[in-house]
Design a protein around this nucleic acid. Structure first.
Length: 656
DNA sequence: AGCACGCCGACT
DNA sequence: GTCGGCGTGCTC
């Protein structure tokens, strides 16, 4: 009989089944006692002995909490403890917060094992790393220290690195914050939405850190590369770990900083279950590990503004304000025939022509094609439900408009703005072509930058750079003028975050301008235009958040969408409806789905303080749905009923 | 998901 | 009397 110590392994079994999302106890057979340590991959029998599943040891203990007889661990797959205790705890918390499976988060955190990569890594001598000396975060009065949390207003200009490349100054700011963390012996995790941002940040990091201190962990890498990167992060040395959204789950030696660039970018929203946003994962991890946290952006998301107002984040403004020259311009007819054809107002056309004598000019355009929506036929304001402010839509041209959220028929609808009672469909965008613009500026080199034509940098010679929003190249020395053309069209997109998104697209483009160069905002006035001309984007976010509070829209409250068959959705609604500070919109019929099955959807709204209660109640419904209500449909003709799905903090139903 | 256990119709 | 139908429930 072996001694009692370390005889039981508590194992997370790799399965997305909600009912298996807990730890299972296994006996550690004597021959595995050396290798069976927390964090290692194991193989375990589950139910009948024939079935073997993968998993991770979470804990090694003298005894588990299971009273019955234990099965034996089948094997330790690898002795490398890839799932560190911090990452496991983060996965558990993040999953609980979103009523999801920790396994799904662990899969984002730990890439599939690659035997060759692992063997190579184990055989390598440790990388020698010299100490890092600190630098200041230039332009700010901030210091990266444990527990410091900032909302950083990025300096809106481009800057040249020692190596010669031009990057947004935000990248230099984030790199300096990382250096401060590393100088204190602590790692930094830097999350950016896309590859273009990553490229700038990488260049800025390379300017201030030796290459062996920088690790990349992003979606563009192959699985072996990602696995290698995670192994590198398991070492004892402080590193700057840079990547896109799932980098927030990376292991890190003594985590000192999590910095997120442009948290409003939709690429920070994880599309895989349990759909946890980088911002939320970063907030959970900061609280868990007590590191510093920084959200850096040119504009401010309503979510970050909420945290600022709570006092959870401290505003970090540049010591010397940089005020870009933003010129709002009405959409007027141009005297130039070709400029008019391209719908460029005359003043913008003149400014662009002047600037083109000197260097590159950026023209930002919208992407073509928008979903139709309903608006008031008289005044054009988008049509909203009289009860819950949800968007109205018609399924067919003949049906009565109904609310997309609460399902109420908009029978006696009247526009809240002008009292009009008739609808029209709007938003069907037509593509404005680059050729149109090119013709308005004859003899000028035209560079197109969009999804298909990726252009990352342009030089300082004259060129007309036509870019869809978000795809703007960086110009050496900055653009001599920036034209923001499709403002009206971008604002016509029906989305809860339309104003936030537009400010993000515009401010990011404006930040690419040379010092003093005009940024001409066409066809947009009011609060949005003045937010840009005064460059007080935090103040705009404050107003935006106040509106959301009034309407009880996210992020003033949290939401969870519950979809599935009618009975399951109704049961879920019943499970949460009685809680305080919780209200339910719907359920509404959302079928028939492409599969032919019909389903229901309800939206649960709740205060942040109720998050844990609502999540665990809905999670219980998901487990119940998965374990008890399994109708075996003998006839293949009837499509399977949709299973119950719960998704937290998804604002899509508020968009329409 | 799989797979075992369990309580009602037509069979040697 | 029982062989097996798949509804129900569990996985350390």
């Amino acid at each position: 009989m072996p001694p009692a110590a370390d005889r039981v392994a508590r194992v997370l079994v790799d399965s997305s089944l909600p009912q298996l999302d807990r730890l299972f106890d296994y006996r550690i057979p004597p021959e595995l006692r050396g290798a069976a340590r927390p964090g290692v991959r194991v193989r375990v029998p589950i139910r009948s002995a024939g079935r073997i599943a993968d998993g991770f040891i979470i804990e090694v203990a003298e005894a588990g909490d299971y009273p019955g007889p234990l099965s034996d661990l089948d094997a330790v797959v690898s002795e490398v403890a890839v799932l560190t205790p911090e990452v496991w705890e983060l996965a558990r918390r993040v999953a609980d917060r979103a009523a999801g499976s920790a396994n799904d988060v662990v899969r984002l955190a730990v890439p599939k094992r690659q035997v060759r990569v692992e063997k190579g890594w184990l055989a390598e001598p440790p990388t020698p790393r010299t100490p890092i000396s600190s630098i200041v975060v230039s332009g700010y009065d901030i210091t990266i220290s444990p527990g410091a949390r900032f909302a950083v207003d990025a300096i809106p200009r481009v800057t040249q690195l020692r190596a010669g490349a031009w990057v947004g100054e935000w990248a230099v700011t984030m790199a300096a914050m990382a250096v401060q963390s590393l100088a204190g012996g602590a790692s930094a995790i830097l999350a950016v939405p896309d590859y273009r941002d990553q490229r700038q940040l990488t260049a800025a990091l390379a300017d201030v850190l030796p290459p062996e201190r920088i690790v990349h962990l992003d979606a563009r890498q192959s699985n072996p590369e990602r696995y290698r990167a995670v192994l590198d992060c398991l070492g004892e040395d402080a590193l700057a770990i840079v990547g896109n959204r799932s980098v927030v789950y990376s292991p890190a030696a003594r985590l000192g900083l999590i910095a997120v660039w442009d948290d409003g970018d939709p690429l920070h929203a994880e599309p895989l279950s349990p759909y946890v946003h980088t911002r939320d994962a970063a907030l959970v991890r900061q609280e868990q590990q007590g590191c510093a946290l920084a959200f850096v952006g040119h504009s401010r998301s309503a979510d970050v503004e909420r945290l600022v107002e709570l006092g959870w984040l401290a505003e970090a403004l540049p010591v010397r304000a940089i005020l870009p020259r933003v010129i709002p311009t009405v959409q007027q007819q141009s005297e130039d025939r070709l400029a008019a054809q391209a719908r460029i107002p005359s003043s913008a056309w003149r400014a662009a022509r002047e600037a083109l004598a000197d260097g590159p000019v950026l023209v930002q355009v919208a992407r073509p094609g928008y979903a139709p929506r309903l608006a008031c036929a008289t005044c054009g304001q988008s049509a909203r439900c009289g009860f819950c402010e949800g968007p109205l839509a018609t399924k067919t041209s003949r049906s009565v408009p109904a609310c997309q959220w609460c399902g109420r028929i908009a029978a006696n609808w009247a526009c809240s703005n002008c009292e009009g009672t008739t609808f029209r469909s709007v938003g069907q965008g037509s593509a404005r072509t680059a050729e149109d613009l090119g013709r308005a500026f004859p003899g000028v080199r035209v560079i197109i930058a969009d999804g298909e034509h990726q252009v990352l940098d342009v030089g300082s010679t004259p060129a007309l750079v036509i870019a869809t929003r978000g795809a703007e190249p960086i110009a050496a020395g900055g653009y001599r003028a920036v034209l923001l053309l499709d403002g009206e069209r971008m604002l016509a997109r029906e989305s809860l975050r339309v104003a936030e998104d537009c400010l993000r697209w515009w401010s990011n483009a404006i930040a690419l301008a040379a010092p003093g160069a005009p940024a001409i905002l066409v066809g947009v006035g009011g609060a949005l235009a003045s937010a840009l001309t005064t460059w007080r984007l935090g103040a705009y976010a404050r107003g935006e958040l106040a509106d959301r509070r009034r309407l009880r829209f996210p992020p003033a409250v949290r939401v969870a969408t519950v979809t599935g068959d009618a009975a399951s959705v109704e049961a879920s609604v019943r499970a949460v409806a009685e809680f305080d500070h919780v209200d339910v919109l719907g359920p509404v019929d959302v079928g028939p789905a492409p599969s032919g099955a019909t389903g229901m959807r309800a939206i649960v709204r709740f205060d942040y303080a109720e998050g844990a209660t609502v999540a665990s109640a809905l999670r219980a419904e998901v487990i119940r749905n998965a374990t008890t209500r399994r109708k075996r449909l003998a006839s293949a003709a009837r499509p399977a009923l949709p299973t119950l799905k719960v998704r937290f903090d998804d604002t899509e139903p508020f968009d329409q």
